[in-house]
Nucleic acid binder design. Structure first.
Length: 642
DNA sequence: TCACTGTAATTTTTT
DNA sequence: ATTACAGTGA
């Protein structure tokens, strides 16, 4: 494709962004304005115009899905693979760098990734072994504290507690202890991937220089969602020569609660002098009325960069408003409206604020025998049986992974009870090392009763035997072997009937996944390790109960980035949406942005629903309509009934 | 090691 | 209402 063809499909502002001179470009891209198109065309333009080589390009996203989409669209435009171009998530890229430079990063070569669930378990164990008040220092709260500290780029030693601030002092003590555990057992959590990678580059000038030389053109998707450490990482990598091209929408920032900082948009304009802001305000998705409603709603937020989406499309149908009596009534209305809809079922989405709301809709759809798909729930690699097998594999390549050890030492039952493990924990506490090493010590020094010693010995042997056994097998046979040799299959068969089948199917699926991975990564030197990283970093698609053409149910957060002909925005009530815990600024503005995201998902028809009463926490509460409904001018809305 | 019981919490979740 | 979890007793 030559450059004129490339630019033909773009509107003026898009073309301006794509062909902008080589300074730092900030693209304010409204919902449905073609931001991915803009990003991919920019990259392809750089290549086609010989501005640079694909080797010098970095493209960063938040989700694996977006990264894959981006690469595939670039390859399509180029009509060949963009060799040497790095496209990935922040975490994926940080991880890649840490694998390359594990020595400089002070990591064991076999370091493994701790997903959120593993992290929580680790903290839970840590807390149980210490004396902190369980209320104030629940695993969840501690996890939050640690992760948000790391998101801010702060280690335990960087935070100073005021004299008399007992809470913070304790928190820091826990943070410290957690850091030690991670170091000792060779695991790295998600936030740590970013922080560690940042420090790696910051503290190794030759390395930094190398990557600054390499990644001269850095592209960032969903920039409004970057947190402090991601921003600092980008600045470091860009240095003085690198050129940033970032795409964002401040009105779609809905992850502040996870550390995202919209302020980074202003920050970047002060940190870099030669920036140019381009606005993409033409919307190619929704009708005029839907856009007008969205614009009116979001105008209630203060401190926006400000933009007005417009469309060439006709006004279309008014926004429909349904006032239900109960949540059952609401669901019934939605189901019947969908039944009457002539188009594809997959073009209908039911969006809600909280996952708990999905049940009513499921029941109503079921009653009308309509198939549906719920986004959410467990992902493939998060399932219990999968995580068990993976824990064995983790232990097999890294015996010091205490988390993996604890998870499976007595799964399936092999009479290694709490007492035995406590003995091991004591040794770790007094002598350091890992549980595995402690197990060795205990057996050598005969510190256990015969029965317990035999059980533990059998376990160690099992692991060693498996390690020898699978050493030279192809990946999928390794998985297969672990499945069989551990006795996990028999273990799961003891559960309820339907469970058994599902679990066994999933285990079979894991072997398949391993086989596919093998095919896909032919040149990978350590396939098993890469497979485990893949499992942690890309936990797989969220469970969908159907692939057919069916109604889509999801939370508003999950809907970001998607679009549908028909959108039902449900549960628009004070206390639910905006949520109880977010009724004052600045959280209220984030709720409003969430509502904006919901509205702008719709192409043709938008339904807003609220109920006069709702069953919550075992009570029936009466509800008032959400303020967000009132913030849309009545002229765009028409009340409907069945 | 299990089954029972009381208690508390119950927003969103890219990696 | 539902679930998750710690504590208790057999």
């Amino acid at each position: 494709m030559n450059s004129s063809n490339l630019l033909d499909t773009l509107n003026n502002p898009q073309r301006e962004a794509v062909t902008a001179p080589l300074e730092h470009i900030l693209v304010l891209a409204g919902a449905g304005s073609g931001k991915t198109r803009c990003l991919t065309h920019r990259i392809v333009w750089l290549l086609e115009m010989d501005k640079t080589h694909s080797y010098n390009i970095l493209a960063v996203t938040f989700t694996n899905k977006a990264a894959i989409e981006m690469r595939s669209r670039i390859d399509t435009l180029l009509q060949k693979p963009a060799k040497g171009l790095w496209a990935g998530t922040f975490h994926g890229i940080a991880h890649r760098l840490l694998r390359f430079h594990w020595q400089d990063a002070n990591l064991p070569q076999a370091f493994q990734i701790l997903d959120s669930d593993d992290q929580r378990r680790t903290l839970k164990r840590l807390l149980k072994a210490s004396r902190f008040d369980e209320k104030m220092f629940s695993p969840k709260k501690v996890q939050n504290f640690i992760n948000s500290s790391k998101d801010e780029g702060l280690r335990a030693k960087d935070i100073i507690a005021d004299e008399g601030d007992g809470w913070l002092t304790s928190m820091l003590e826990i943070y410290h202890a957690y850091e030690e555990i991670c170091l000792r057992t060779g695991v790295v959590d998600f936030a740590e991937l970013l922080l560690l990678c940042y420090e790696l580059l910051r503290d190794h000038p030759p390395l930094l220089e190398h990557y600054q030389q390499r990644f001269q053109y850095i592209h960032v998707d969903e920039f409004q969602d970057t947190n402090t450490i991601q921003y600092k990482w980008l600045c470091l990598l860009a240095g003085t020569q690198g050129k940033l091209f970032v795409v964002f929408d401040d009105d779609q920032s809905v992850y502040a609660w996870r550390g995202a900082r919209v302020e980074n948009i202003q920050q970047i304009q002060t940190d870099f002098s030669d920036t140019r802001l381009v606005r993409l305000e033409q919307n190619y998705r929704s009708t005029g009325t839907i856009l007008a409603a969205a614009n009116a709603l979001i105008a209630h937020n203060k401190g926006r960069l400000g933009k007005k989406l417009w469309t060439q499309d006709k006004a279309g149908a008014p926004v429909a408003l349904y006032s239900a009596y109960t949540e059952v009534d609401e669901a019934k209305f939605v189901a019947e409206k969908i039944q009457a809809w002539q188009g594809k079922r997959r073009e209908v989405a039911i969006l809600y604020r909280t996952t708990a709301q999905s049940r009513q809709f499921e029941e109503a759809l079921l009653q009308n025998s309509m198939s549906y798909r719920i986004y959410g729930g467990l992902r493939f690699y998060e399932r219990l049986e999968i995580k068990d097998i993976l824990a064995y594999l983790r232990l097999l390549i890294h015996r010091d992974n205490d988390g993996a050890f604890e998870r499976i030492v007595n799964t399936p039952r092999r009479n290694i009870g709490n007492k035995t493990i406590d003995t091991l924990r004591d040794i770790v506490r007094s002598q350091g090392g890992s549980l595995w090493q402690a197990a060795r010590t205990v057996l050598d020094e005969k510190q256990l009763k015969a029965r317990a010693a035999n059980s533990l010995m059998a376990f160690l042997r099992l692991i060693e035997q498996m390690a020898a056994q699978i050493k030279d097998l192809p990946l999928h046979e390794k998985v297969e072997q672990v499945k069989i040799a551990t006795g996990l299959i028999i273990h799961y068969q003891k559960e309820r009937k339907e469970e058994v089948e599902r679990r066994l199917e999933n285990l079979e699926e894991l072997v398949n996944a391993a086989r596919q991975f093998e095919q896909f990564k032919r040149d990978e030197p350590n396939l098993l390790m890469a497979f485990l990283d893949h499992a942690a970093l890309e936990a797989g698609e969220r469970q969908g109960n159907s692939n057919e053409d069916c109604v889509q149910l999801m939370t508003l957060h999950a809907a970001k980035g998607l679009e549908f002909d028909n959108v039902f925005l449900c549960g628009l009530e004070e206390g639910l949406f905006p949520h109880q815990n977010s009724l004052d600024e600045p959280q209220l503005e984030e709720e409003r942005r969430l509502c904006y995201v919901g509205i702008t998902r719709a192409r043709k028809h938008l339904y807003l629903c609220h109920s006069k009463s709702r069953y919550r926490y075992g009570r029936r509460d009466s509800c008032t309509p959400s303020r967000f409904i009132g913030e849309i001018p009545p002229k765009f809305i028409r009340a409907v009934r069945l």
